[in-house]
């Protein structure tokens, strides 16, 4: 449910804006000079906005494509991400976006062609190398598809570049554009997963794990390449059993041949954002656990992190080839 729509004056006549506005016929948009006059101002309450988010349609100027953190990747050495949107429909207690912005409003950058230019520039620079582009870093790649048309627009574009992979990271089960098209061989549809017992408590407004697994299974059967993202790994009583059950459930339902990659990542928050996140969710069970400062991140102790990582790797290796497995150390 969108509370209000703001539109940057510069793009008010953009065809994508006009198309989006048709979906919100009862809303009267407010025209603004720049999205920053509404978004991420001081003294905004992320939690209240999360209940009543507005949509801001804007033009991204510069920084369309950025390098990922050094340990973020799925096999290629050239990794970039791009964010056509800030913020997410979902509300997950471990999400760094809560601390990144003081606004929960959705900013949708409609100048997709400028992102394409940025992507082409990187592709040309790394002509004979393998490159991976990640979307879904600052938002969910598919959850807003009905409004943004992001996947429908970008998949045909990426299809043209054989040395390139695009990862769509999602928790959504709204797969309409993917179900309507032939699988794109250089696209990885990557799903974030965690044990249902945990997800029920931490992932708000998100499709259940069962629904996510069913959807992955459907896509896998269609021939889409699947990414499994067990990130973050969350600790607690009985964690070994519940992860064991999750992995068993996943591999029982998903055609192994469809799995492109599996990644594991520890629970981590940038130090600078953690206080803000805790301040907004003081009664979060997840945040009430023993988390320690390690370098510039807040996380479980090294001991817990290593134990979880090695236990999960051992289990996953039993289900799938080792070469598919990547772990993210979670540096910022």
């Amino acid at each position: 449910m969108i509370n209000q729509i703001y539109i940057e004056n510069e793009i008010k006549d953009h065809p994508r804006v006009q198309r989006i506005l048709k979906k919100f016929k009862r809303k009267t948009p407010i025209y603004i000079d720049k999205y920053a006059s509404v978004f991420n101002k001081k003294n905004q309450n992320f939690r209240i906005q999360k209940k009543y988010p507005s949509l801001i349609l804007a033009k991204k100027k510069g920084g369309h494509v950025l390098k990922t953190p050094s340990d973020f990747g799925i096999g290629n050495s050239n990794n970039f991400y791009f964010s056509h949107m800030y913020n997410c429909l979902y509300d997950c207690e471990y999400c760094f976006l809560q601390g990144m912005y003081s606004s929960a409003d959705y900013v949708l950058f409609v100048n997709y062609e400028d992102f394409e230019d940025g992507i082409k520039e990187k592709i040309n620079f790394h002509k004979n190398e393998r490159v991976t582009f990640f979307s879904g870093y600052d938002c969910d790649s598919l959850a807003f598809e009905k409004i943004s048309g992001f996947v429908s627009h970008f998949l045909p574009f990426f299809k043209r570049f054989s040395n390139v992979e695009i990862e769509l990271r999602t928790k959504s089960t709204q797969m309409e554009p993917l179900l309507k098209m032939e699988p794109v061989s250089n696209c990885i549809v990557a799903f974030s997963l965690l044990p249902a017992e945990i997800a029920n408590k931490t992932d708000h407004k998100v499709p259940t794990i069962k629904k996510r697994i069913n959807k992955i299974s459907e896509l896998a059967l269609m021939g889409w390449k699947i990414g499994l993202r067990f990130d973050p790994l969350i600790h607690g009583e009985n964690w070994k059993n519940i992860y064991k059950e999750l992995f068993a459930d996943v591999f029982k339902n998903i055609d192994k041949k469809a799995i492109h990659s599996i990644t594991l990542g520890p629970l981590r928050f940038p130090k600078a954002m953690f206080k803000k996140i805790l301040d907004m969710n003081p009664r979060s069970k997840l945040l009430s656990d023993v988390l320690v400062l390690r370098g510039n991140k807040i996380s479980y102790t090294n001991e817990i992190e290593l134990e979880m990582q090695s236990f999960c790797i051992d289990l996953l290796n039993k289900h799938s080839p080792e070469t598919l497995l990547f772990s993210c150390k979670g540096n910022f």
Binding site: P195, K201, H235, G236, E237, W239, I242, K285, S288, V290
Partner: peptide, 10 residues
């Protein structure tokens, strides 16, 4: 007390 407690998710 908090340090030795393990979160119960179920």
């Amino acid at each position: 007390s908090l340090k030795h407690h393990k979160l119960k998710w179920e």
